[in-house]
Write a protein that binds this DNA or RNA. Structure first.
Lengths: 86, 86
DNA sequence: CGGCATTATAGCACATGTGCTATAATTGAT
DNA sequence: ATCAATTATAGCACATGTGCTATAATGCCG
């Protein structure tokens, strides 16, 4: 049969970049002294979402990242203070 | 009938933040001397997507933003060098 | 004004982000 | 090794990001 093929148009999922961000978030979360659970609660994001981001399973939206920055009370730039791979 | 109601769980769409980012992207795109069309072509993103981002109609993903930063050849931080509203 | 480039909208199909809930796996302290 | 806290996975439903194509609106220069 013909199917099960994925569409051929390539969507954007930058695994390397997403991993770099995951690392950065974790670093800052720990530095600011939050558990994933606390961060989830205080931000209003779901715990599963925090975990998925830190394990680089998803490609979060800007709004989500903005929420994280506000909750962690760090300048937005801090979350992006890393070298973007390739 | 009962429906047409939106789900009550609130998803994240940070209109203010998204607008601030839209502005920042446009500023940098112009400074680097790109038209939306060129940026779309060189990045591999669709032109409609670029327009939707700069008019703050959508909430882009990190991967999309990473692609933009690479194409514009600016450090990631530059795209986030603005004050996050509220 | 006319014509061209640029930007903005729109609608569809498909892929995926997000919340929710539950469960498993890992870690740390004693 | 046990117990508690923390982190990671999983699956569902729903909302929405993205590519594509086409068209409209705007800007700009002659």
């Amino acid at each position: 049969m013909k199917s099960m093929q994925k569409s051929d148009r390539k969507l954007v999922f930058d695994q390397k970049g997403i991993e770099a961000f995951a690392e950065q978030l974790k670093k800052i979360r720990l530095k600011e002294g939050y558990t994933q659970s606390q961060l989830a609660f205080e931000s209003g994001l779901s715990l599963s979402q925090i975990a998925r981001i830190e394990t680089a399973r998803i490609n979060p939206t800007l709004s989500t990242v903005f929420t994280l920055a506000r909750t962690l009370d760090v300048p937005l730039m801090d979350l992006f203070d890393f070298e973007l791979p390739e």
